[in-house]
Write a protein that binds this DNA or RNA. Structure first.
Length: 672
RNA sequence: GCCCGGGUAGCUCAGUCGGUAGAGCAGCUCACUCGUAAUGAGCAGGUCAGGAGUUCGAAUCUCCUCUCGGGCUCCA
């Protein structure tokens, strides 16, 4: 007896079926459900897999009776698991096409990834793919798909595998690696385990090392597109060969493919680098250097609003301001350990009057010096020092990305010094502060990562354990969903990274909270406790925006440039219908300014429609039209950014009281 | 840093076979005085990213450099 769960959620019972094909045919004779693989006991299998063998495999003893019933879930192409399979299968077809087009090409690995797949190749004679090749490969792939080739699974021993892939060095390396490793299932994803090798063969000439499963035949594929060619290091190791990686996307239907391509266009529309130019916010002058932006008046105003809001919220939450310079002598970074651990990321030194100066890559050492400027009492703790600190990091040229990854960045940086017993509560309080501040920017879909000790790190295990526990305590207390990222911590501290999802569900890392037990030691920090003994404070590093530049980019992309009113550089545009309405327009403008609004008047030197269009393109929240009709009545026409049709004859005073709460933010944080 | 692809007016782009550069928008001037997403005319705007080479002649072909985009690696 087989209990079958269909992709549409229904359940059916089937008395007997020898394999997935037969089962599918019985429950879906017209093949309307698009079943490509099935799931049993949490694992996916080819439809050709014998159900008898599965049933036997689940018996606890070899001779026991077979279980009375087994549960099978049929997986359609139009599900997350199904798409993974079909993308993986499409990757295989791509490899087959490349190997046919470039005889002698070596192929490495080709997994499915979010929204698509890739495959890595090394072409003969160090040849390289060009963008034009994508079209040729796509054509070949369509031929393979049309010829309806079956994906046939074959299992063999490691020795047989070595013969089969004798001319494929990357495949051999995968096999060798498993053979040499003591563990059981290391490379199972690539079709090799200590038990043997699984392969999939489509034709006499094309066979790939692979765990599977796959779609039954190539005819189930077809809604795909090759996207781009890129370089990728073999095994992700930059000391090894750089292979050519081809990226593609694949979907269960033409419609799904088109929706995906539309999403890419939507993301492009939101690209902060494009919006930065269109809205006249910032740019990267080549004369200054890569990764070093300048902010134009409108962009600088938005920055100011962000920073001002943040600064006031911090002051209202028990932080004190600090200000520190951009350069320091090498001694400081020797003590802090930056020169030992992080030199590659620092700008090169400058020599002056016999001393060596470095631009600072972080603010923490300087904040520590403020702490150490005099003896500290337990009564002062927690001591919270906050600064918009501009730091310089030598990011490699290839990683720069608009405002999201720059070489000169401003952190909304604070360091909290507290006693060991205060740590847990301070972290909880901090997380609450983080979330409420981010919410004020209209972001409310968070997930945290608790990053634990990496291999390359300093300090003893007990301290790491203690700090990690304090972070976890805070996460649990604050109720933010989190996952543990093992070994992803900083070299000196475990951390919480807060990620958020933007309006089109993209994940961005923003805030980071780190518990540092190293720097207090390195700087020999202390406080006098209530029992008159000297103790070492704990230290928390934290940045909520992460960097102002990066956060700016995230906001722009989240809002597609249409920033909330309180952050909009221009909140109101007042448009007199005719020049004779200028006086009234100016009056409206003055009243808006009086409640703190940022408003401009654009006189009637152009037709009204043109001026409205321009303001709409500038994404101004409110366009206010005033004409002959309004002047005697004390009204305005209100054209909202998010609306197609205007509200006319709105009483000015009503409008003013309506928008007053919208033009400035509410502070986050309360009395300490 | 590495791989692939770009760089032509402020922006978006055209430029054929190598014969010395073009459009729309934006800008400026003038006219138009307008009720909810583009008024009209005129003007101006270029070391075709920079440098070197091939050629009688280079935006166009070759090489180098800079820079941007997509990836890889990296992100204390």
């Amino acid at each position: 007896m087989i209990i079958v769960k269909l992709p549409n959620g229904q359940e059916q019972t089937v008395v007997e079926a020898k394999d997935g094909f037969e089962l599918t045919t019985k429950v879906d004779p017209k093949r309307e459900l698009g079943v490509i693989v099935f799931e049993f006991d949490g694992e996916l299998f080819d439809l050709s897999t014998s159900l008898d063998s599965l049933a036997e495999a689940t018996s606890t003893t070899p001779n026991a009776d077979r279980p009375e019933s087994i549960a099978i879930t049929l997986v359609s192409a139009a599900s997350e698991k199904g798409r993974e399979v079909l993308r993986h299968s499409t990757a295989h077809v791509m490899a087959q096409a490349v190997l046919e087009l470039w005889p002698g090409a070596k192929f490495a690995i080709g997994p499915s990834i979010a929204d698509g797949f890739y495959y890595d190749f090394a072409l003969p004679n160090a040849a390289r793919f060009s963008d034009d090749d994508l079209e040729i490969i796509e054509k070949k792939m369509r031929g393979i798909i049309k010829s309806n080739q079956r994906f046939t699974r074959q299992e063999c021993t490691i020795e047989e595998g070595k013969v089969l892939f004798a001319d494929q060095p990357f495949k051999l390396e995968i096999i060798d690696r498993v053979e040499q490793a003591s563990g059981d299932d290391i490379d199972i994803a690539e079709g090799v385990s200590s038990k043997g090798i699984s392969t999939y063969r489509n034709t006499e000439t094309f066979v790939d090392l692979c765990r599977g499963p796959h779609v039954p035949s190539t005819s189930r594929l077809g809604h795909f597109r090759l996207m781009r060619v890129a370089g990728a290091y073999w095994r992700g190791d930059e000391k090894r060969d750089q292979l050519q990686r081809l990226y593609g996307t694949a979907w269960e239907s033409k419609q799904a493919l088109e929706e995906y391509l539309a999403r890419l266009i939507e993301a492009e529309r939101r690209d902060h680098r494009k919006l930065g130019v269109d809205l006249d916010l910032f740019h990267f002058p080549p004369e200054i250097g890569s990764g070093l932006p300048v902010f134009h008046p409108k962009g600088a105003l938005v920055r100011h609003l962000m920073e001002d809001f943040s600064k006031k919220s911090h002051l209202a939450s028990g932080y004190q301001l600090a200000w520190t310079p951009h350069l320091a002598k090498s001694t400081l970074f020797e003590i802090s350990g930056h020169l030992e651990w992080y030199k590659d990321g620092m700008y090169p030194p400058m020599e002056m009057e016999g001393a060596t100066y470095y631009p600072k890559p972080m603010n923490c050492p300087m904040h520590i010096l403020i702490y150490k400027s005099r003896q500290r009492s337990y009564r002062e703790l927690p001591l919270r020092l906050f600064e918009f600190g501009t730091v310089y990091r030598f990011e490699r040229s290839g990683v720069l990305h608009g405002l999201a990854r720059v070489r000169g960045l401003t952190q909304d940086d604070a360091h909290i010094f507290c006693s060991p017993s205060q740590l847990g509560d301070e972290l909880t309080r901090l997380l609450t502060f983080v979330v409420s501040l981010l919410r004020m920017f209209g972001l409310d879909d968070f997930e945290a990562e608790l990053a634990t000790r990496p291999e390359k790190s300093v300090g003893d295990d007990k301290e790491w354990e203690e700090a990690t526990q304090a972070l976890e305590y805070a996460l649990v207390n604050s109720g933010i969903p989190f996952v543990v990222a093992k070994g992803e911590g900083a070299f000196y501290a475990p951390k919480i990274d807060v990620h958020l999802k933007d309006a089109i569900k993209r994940r961005w890392q923003v805030s980071t909270l780190q518990v540092d037990l190293q720097l207090p030691q390195r700087f020999d920090m202390e406080f006098v406790d209530s029992d008159n003994t000297r103790k070492r404070p704990y230290m928390i590093h934290r940045a909520l925006f992460g960097s102002v530049e990066r956060f700016f980019a995230i906001l722009l992309e989240h809002y597609a440039g249409a920033l909330p009113t309180w952050l909009s550089p221009v909140q109101f545009v007042v448009l007199p219908v005719k020049e004779t309405n200028d006086d009234y327009a100016n009056l409206v403008n003055t009243k808006l300014a009086a409640i703190g609004g940022r408003s401009i008047v654009v006189s009637a030197t152009e037709p009204l429609g043109a001026r409205i269009r321009r303001s709409k393109l500038d994404k101004v929240p409110y366009i206010l039209v005033v004409g002959d009709r309004d002047e005697p009545a004390g009204t305005i026409g209100v054209n909202r950014r998010d609306s197609q049709s205007p509200d006319t004859d709105v009483a000015l005073e009503d409008f003013l009281s309506l928008v007053e709460s919208e033009i400035a933010p509410n502070l986050v944080g309360g009395p300490n």
